[in-house]
Design a protein around this nucleic acid. Structure first.
Length: 389
RNA sequence: GGCGGCUUAGCCAAGUGGAAAGGCAACGGUUUGCAAAACCGUAAUUCCUGGGUUCGAAUCCCAGAGCCGCCUCCA
């Protein structure tokens, strides 16, 4: 999670640590007659809760007709769900309760813990699309019946990750762990890959997709690094209002896309389009003012890291002054000073071969470095090197 | 069987009533010693199919096809 640059939750509560809260919630529902007890188990009476099915767009009659399993004889209605279940003798999970030894129903913990830490109504409830019914539907029923207040203001259901069109799942055995993914691709590539499509669309995990994402991110990264490099020797110049206007336009485009239900794919498009403009300006051969470059740098710094969670990746040698100051604005893919010195050495040696026009040997060095993931670029102002993403 | 979702270029992917974003790949060009990077240019007569509504449909409606999810355990 940290490698993906995901923020950690402030609290990660455990269901087993909140049994009293869950019992309390069951008692509240019993007191309001939204629940009934049968032989040590407590069930939620879905017919008493009017809004049951409002999230998943289902109606009780429709649901009932499709019940495939044998109805539990304890339930008054087949769709009633358990709030508390009596533990049979072999059951490992068991706590004392007013109804005997048992364990909480499957949906109860979310309601009880969210009430404790987030209040009776909270803003955003996330989760996978596959949990809309019955899990989230039941959470709503329990919580709203107990509190008589809206449970959640916004539901964000992300679609599933698939492999070959099939849901990625432990039980199907077709899952790829992040650890495995990171063996081939940097975490930021994985993140960029995910950001390339909308969260509500299914995401098919393919090697080609990751590869394409890596190339795209690399392209952006090259541009961002170029801006930062140019900034170091840029001078203040008059004019250049046009660029500053464009920065605002693309920023607006980006933010509007994000405001529209986190349309990251469209936001990324703004980033690419802006980068094309930047490359055009940088490659025009004209001097670019410090102010304009500063604006470009800020564009990336304001949007990439704080919003997309993708910090600046330094592909080449660390050339910043001071030590360690980079981590606040960027991430270093590798920091290996000895390796960098060796690359520099090879680069300088190759430069001398090129001066003597010994192209064959110079090209061989470049090709072999390329195989190792080091790219040499011969520029008019000298040879640059960078790492492949 | 019931309910819901998806189907847009070789691949990925936005767009949900007014001229089809963006990325990757490919090809041609500028540049380069050659490359790379960058830029310019090229790709959907069919936006799954068939009807319909509309001045106008990828977008709305109806029917159909294919794929997927949920309706059971686990959370």
């Amino acid at each position: 999670m940290d490698k993906l640059n995901n923020k950690r939750a402030d609290i990660s509560p455990r269901a087993t640590g909140h049994i009293p809260e869950q019992i309390e919630l069951v008692e509240k529902l019993l007191a309001k007659s939204y629940a009934y007890e049968v032989g040590g188990s407590v069930y939620f009476d879905v017919r008493r809760f009017e809004g049951y099915g409002k999230l998943s767009g289902r109606r009780l009659e429709e649901l009932q007709s499709s019940v495939r399993i044998e109805p539990n004889p304890d339930k008054r209605y087949p769709l009633d769900f358990a709030l508390w279940k009596k533990a049979n003798r072999s059951h490992i999970l068991r706590w004392k309760s007013p109804w005997g030894e048992g364990f909480p129903g499957w949906h109860l913990e979310c309601s009880a813990m969210s009430m404790r830490y987030l209040g009776e109504t909270f803003d955003i409830h996330g989760g996978g699309l596959e949990n809309v019914f019955p899990h989230h539907e039941c959470e709503i029923a329990q919580s709203e019946a107990a509190n008589e207040k809206p449970f959640v203001r916004y539901w964000m259901h992300n679609n599933m990750v698939t492999v070959g069109g099939q849901k990625m799942g432990k039980s199907l055995g077709n899952f790829v762990t992040l650890k495995q993914a990171f063996e081939k691709h940097s975490p930021m590539v994985v993140r960029f890959f995910i950001l390339n499509s909308h969260y509500r669309s299914p995401l098919d995990y393919t090697e080609e997709g990751l590869e394409a994402a890596a190339h795209g991110l690399e392209r952006l990264t090259i541009t961002i690094n170029a801006v930062n490099e140019r900034l170091r020797y840029a001078k203040e110049l008059p004019q250049e209002e046009v660029i500053l206007d464009q920065i605002e336009t693309y920023k607006r485009q980006f933010l509007d896309a994000m405001d529209d239900d986190f349309n990251t794919a469209e936001a990324l498009a703004a980033l690419f389009q802006f980068s094309k403009e930047v490359n055009l300006i940088l490659g025009s051969g004209q001097e670019v003012s410090h102010k304009a470059l500063e604006g470009m740098k800020n564009f990336y710094e304001e949007l990439c890291k704080p919003i997309l969670g993708i910090p600046r990746i330094v592909l080449g040698k660390l050339q910043l002054t001071g030590t360690g100051s980079l981590t606040t604005t960027g991430t270093v893919v590798h920091k290996n000073e000895k390796e960098e010195a060796l690359i520099e050495l090879l680069k300088d040696t190759r430069d001398r071969l090129r001066q003597k026009k010994q192209w064959e040997l110079a090209d061989e060095v470049r090709n072999k470095l390329d195989n190792l993931g080091i790219i040499l670029e011969d520029k008019p102002e000298g040879t640059r090197w960078r790492r492949k993403l």
